[in-house]
Amino acid sequence: MAWLVRRIAASIAIVFAVVTITFFLIRLAHGKPFIPGGDQAVDPAVIAVLEEQYGADKPSHIQYIAFLRQLTRGNLGQSFALQRPVADALAEAIPNTLILTGAALLLDFLLGLGLGVYQALRVNRLPDVVLGNTTLFIYSFPTFWLGLILLLVFGEWLHWFPIGGKTDPVLCPAVDSFRCTLDLMHHLVLPALTLGVVGAAGTARFQRAAMLEVARQDFIRTARAKGAPERRVVLRHQLRNALLTFITRFGLAFPFLLTGAVLTETIFAWPGMGRIATEAILRRDYPVVTAVALVASAMVVAGNLVADLLLAAADPRLRSASADVT
């Protein structure tokens, strides 16, 4: 228990550090908020008023203290560019990102695990070699490029799937929620494929290696020697142990998915956190940038923590040892 408390404390400290770094880094960027891009000129007096209104005219450290004070009350501040509270904008975007990354993760793990285990059972035979080269190739794709190609083939040429957005803006508010959900799923296919397929290729390679690593160990030989049927050896002994390394990968998948989501959301006009973040950074919308850093780093840290907990729960060998680690 003490271990868990310490881990949570460390996680909070990490998130705090990330938020602090972000807070000051974005304020060091050249260019100021409230100045629209392009050739539109804005009266400096107007900007000065706006800056004062939002408190952006004060020195950074004063702003930081004010920010922390608001944060303790659960207030993330007012967006400069969106004319609404940051929390509202994020509350709208985060579920969208979670839907996308959730679907991608599911695809990643189901497909990746299946392929990896299948390959390990046919190791060095034709299916393994073919799949091995295919996954290596796909794993090397830039995600956003795969997104564009999928968009071209399945969106523009075959017209199987819509080319962007979360739901059809005309259809959806008009019809019932069931049809809306179907429409959402329809829109979800291509972005989730983009993110999930590349991840699945990585997972498959990882899982194959983990299975083979376990296959070499003594307890597998023992299981075979005592006459356990092959099915049981593979499922109970080999797969179960190989899944332990897989749990670690689950925790590490979060940052990858977040990064991938930024690009994928941009391509498919998916109204998620990644798009808000990119916009906010480019427009120097300080409060939104800081809030996104908070949410994103919390997700990464929480992912690692959950993976560690799952690992401790799944592997009895770690339960006593985990008390000493960290």
Partner: peptide, 23 residues
């Protein structure tokens, strides 16, 4: 601990911000 923080940084955002330091 520094490395822990680095691994928790949303890298693409940090890159975007760091790059925004230069005109």
């Amino acid at each position: 601990r520094g490395v822990d923080i680095g691994l928790a940084l949303p890298r693409i955002f940090i890159l975007l911000m760091a790059i925004a330091l230069w005109e």
